[in-house]
Amino acid sequence: MAAPYSKKVMDHFMHPRNVGEMENPDGIGKVGNPVCGDIMEMYIKVKDNVIVDAKFKTFGCGAAIATSSMATELIKGKTIEEALKLTNKAVAEALDGLPPVKMHCSVLAEDAFKGAVDDYLKKKTGVGLQGWRPHEEDHEH
């Protein structure tokens, strides 16, 4: 079938990994905007500074679901510091690319994850992720 997305995007879209809510997560990141049509929630479980589990729920298009799925795959098993190196470009590349108009979906996935880390750090240390704020404000409409 001819599709607007790569095979990898379609695979993660049709068979998303790590879907669902998490019982007692250590951090929750909620990003998105109903006007844009994407809302993402990411949940992480952290043990000894390592992300032992990640889950997500997404309201959004094929790219939004696939990038959420890929982002959770990429961060699982990594230390917080390693995982924070994850960029939206890396998520998109891991999916063999996204159409240019869909790159903002990968930004959302990065933000959802970093939002979850921010939440985790706030709960743990009282101080959130240094120098971080979601891209949302720069999001062009």
Binding site: M1, A3, G62
Partner: peptide
């Protein structure tokens, strides 16, 4: 309600 259009469209296309 609660579901985005393109994700339905792609599933129907499949």
């Amino acid at each position: 309600k609660y579901v985005e259009g393109e994700s339905m469209l792609l599933n129907l296309d499949i």
